[in-house]
């Protein structure tokens, strides 16, 4: 079965775009993450719906110019976000 992903509950995150980089404060852990594109876009897409890797890739490709539309690379990014607690794997 293909895993679905969902962003952590919005009330647990503080997302502050600064310039090229975005700050994500994770209330549950107290950790501040400094992230680059497409992480904020991933969190936004996964906040609206639970998505598989392929669905997320399609969603991001529709909305943004992805330089590297590689599902394997996106899955690695997602695993990192799951590890950090910013995304849940359902």
């Amino acid at each position: 079965m293909t895993a679905l992903y969902r962003a952590a509950a919005p009330e647990t995150l503080r997302i502050v775009p600064l310039d090229a980089l975005t700050l994500v404060y994770h209330r549950a852990s107290g950790v501040t993450h400094v992230v680059d594109a497409p992480v904020p876009e991933m969190l936004e897409a996964l906040d609206r719906d639970d998505l598989t890797v392929d669905q997320l890739l399609t969603r991001l490709s529709d909305s943004y110019d992805l330089l590297d539309a590689d599902p394997a690379a996106l899955a690695i990014r997602l695993d990192e976000l799951v590890e950090a607690g910013l995304v849940e794997r359902l």
Binding site: L18, D19, A20, L21, L23, V34
Partner: peptide, 8 residues
Amino acid sequence: VPPSEAFV
């Protein structure tokens, strides 16, 4: 210095 660098 951009804000993100100043922040870090």
